[in-house]
């Protein structure tokens, strides 16, 4: 079972390593992790994607809540929510491929953010599945490198992680 957790964290040195250390010490998976400050500079927001059985996810939530630096936490996958990930893909192009890459990028609502004589860098956002689908749609052997941000997410409606 995949679970997406969104966490308000004290914006303090070491807070991130407490979370990361907890996962490694207790043998939990981290599939992706994304963290940045919020509108309140004293807090960071972390979106963490993990996986495991129901009991494991329950333990992860409890163990995270036990960390003094964790201010608030919500399991997004418990309810309706939106998730987005940003990806940059650098692809090799030649004359014959450029048109197809452009069309593909349009289909996936991506933008070409950098152009060189032999490559494009395409920016694309969406659910992780969509990004993966895009990578699979690219012509074989065309990917030079990929950078993905990991998911961020918010609950739908007014449900929020306000203090």
């Amino acid at each position: 079972m995949k679970a997406t957790l969104t966490i308000l964290l004290e914006n303090e040195a070491g807070a991130l390593s407490r979370v990361a250390g907890l996962f490694s010490a207790r043998g939990y998976n981290i599939e992706s992790l994304c963290v940045a400050p919020t509108e309140d500079p004293t807090m960071s927001r972390m979106t963490l994607v993990t996986s495991g059985g129901e009991q494991v996810i329950e333990q992860i939530v409890k163990q995270l809540n036990k960390l003094i630096d964790v201010v608030k936490l919500q399991e997004l996958t418990d309810g309706l929510h939106v998730e987005r990930e940003l990806m940059l893909v650098k692809v090799i192009t030649d004359e014959s491929l450029r048109g197809e890459l452009l069309r593909l990028a349009q289909i996936f609502r991506g933008n070409i953010v950098d152009v060189a004589s032999d490559c494009y860098t395409i920016e694309i956002t969406g659910s992780s599945d969509k990004l993966t689908a895009f990578l699979e749609a690219l012509p074989q052997g065309s990917i030079l490198e990929v950078a993905r941000s990991g998911e961020v997410g918010l609950a739908r409606g007014s449900r929020s992680l306000k203090l």
């Binding site: 070491g14 390593s17 003094i68």
Partner: peptide
């Protein structure tokens, strides 16, 4: 010290 003790304290501070 903060790194070494992190897994075996309730909390720590520098």
């Amino acid at each position: 010290s903060v790194g070494i003790t992190r897994p075996c304290v309730k909390h720590n501070f520098l």
